[in-house]
Simulated scan of single mutants.
Amino acid sequence: MHTVWKGAISFGLVHVPVKMFSATEDKDISLRMLHKTCGSPINYIRRCPNCDVETDWDDIVKGYEYDKGRFVLFEKEELEQLAGEKSRTIQILDFVALEEIDPIYFQKTYYLSPDQAGGNAYHLLLKAMSDSGRIGIAKVSIRSKSSLAAIRVIDNCLAMETIYYPDEIRSISQVPGLPEAVNVNEKELTMAKLLIEQLSTPFEPEKYSDDYRDNMIELINRKVAGEDIRVAPQQEQTNVIDLMAALQASLEAAKLPPKGAGLDTGAAAKPAATADGDIPQAGIADAAAESGGETALPKPRKPRSPAKSKAPKETVS
């Protein structure tokens, strides 16, 4: 398991170093968003609509919109200071009976294991809570979010369940269309209770399965076996694009004579072979640009004598 958090459980004067692991995993089948025309995956780009540029993570800050289009900004350090030192502590405030907590409060479950030399304190807390039948109500900060939590025993392990704050639970009165109190037929009520009794059984989670996921896996396998697939087209290599840009830059550079060389601009536009039969770099660029090929540029030779004018330097990015 991957450690998602490290800190300590604190109750009274007892300090128990622990590591946290996710107790559950999402097994939903993830489907990609594709372009229907060619089958390529769709990219989601962080882009500033005002500056019309893509934004790096280093250029992104968090902000709160207190009015339409008006924000207050927060630096990472400011948010970390709000959490303070307690961000690494699961501080138990009270011990209560588990049956007093409605399941609507529960969010996500984590396993806790002893960290460093905290094994004795860990087992002491586990044994004390197991014998008392109580669970601890604590405060904890995970990823800069403060949560209430319930610390309880599962088999031979301490577990933490994040739970909602009371003001995060919506009132039943907000639910529309709830039936008003009506008179219930006694015979129908008796039959309903009898049916519930007949369907009552001990909870065995292993007998339940995700039918949708099983059916989705079966459908995927059938499509793969029947080759009902779409292959995304290969993207052009960036070095080809860069090469064409370099060729174009070389061509443009060849049209302009070096400063002070005194060459005729008309002659420079159409390069000819040199005395020793070598073709200038601009000639290679012309040939590559006309053919659309990916001709590599040879390194320019050094001039044979200082008297000859130097050819313009070519930069290949």
Results as ranks from 00 to 15, higher is better:
11 F>N: 00
310 K>A: 01
16 V>A: 01
252 E>N: 13
269 A>Y: 07
143 R>S: 02
217 I>K: 11
271 P>V: 01
137 I>R: 11
137 I>F: 08
57 W>K: 03
76 K>W: 00
19 K>I: 00
193 K>L: 15
277 G>W: 06
228 D>P: 05
70 R>T: 05
16 V>L: 12
276 D>C: 05
61 V>P: 02
183 N>G: 06
153 V>K: 04
75 E>T: 09
74 F>L: 10
160 M>L: 13
64 Y>C: 07
262 G>R: 06
55 T>H: 00
213 R>G: 01
182 V>W: 07
198 Q>S: 03
158 L>W: 10
98 L>I: 03
256 L>E: 15
70 R>K: 14
131 D>A: 14
117 A>E: 07
241 I>V: 09
143 R>E: 06
295 T>I: 13
202 P>S: 01
19 K>D: 06
268 A>M: 15
272 A>C: 10
49 P>E: 10
9 I>H: 13
216 M>A: 10
149 A>Q: 06
219 L>G: 03
298 P>C: 10
74 F>R: 06
296 A>I: 09
166 P>G: 01
14 V>L: 14
61 V>E: 10
167 D>R: 09
260 G>Y: 13
305 S>G: 08
40 S>T: 12
242 D>L: 10
281 Q>E: 15
258 P>E: 06
170 R>H: 07
143 R>F: 06
170 R>W: 02
128 A>I: 14
277 G>N: 04
229 I>T: 15
111 Y>V: 06
68 K>P: 04
15 H>N: 08
257 P>T: 08
270 K>P: 06
59 D>P: 03
164 Y>K: 15
49 P>N: 07
140 V>Y: 09
264 D>Q: 12
244 M>N: 03
261 A>S: 15
8 A>C: 08
4 V>G: 05
128 A>L: 13
133 G>T: 00
175 V>Q: 02
273 A>R: 14
84 G>A: 05
164 Y>H: 15
23 A>K: 04
182 V>E: 14
248 Q>R: 15
38 C>D: 15
194 L>R: 11
230 R>L: 04
219 L>W: 01
143 R>K: 12
206 E>R: 03
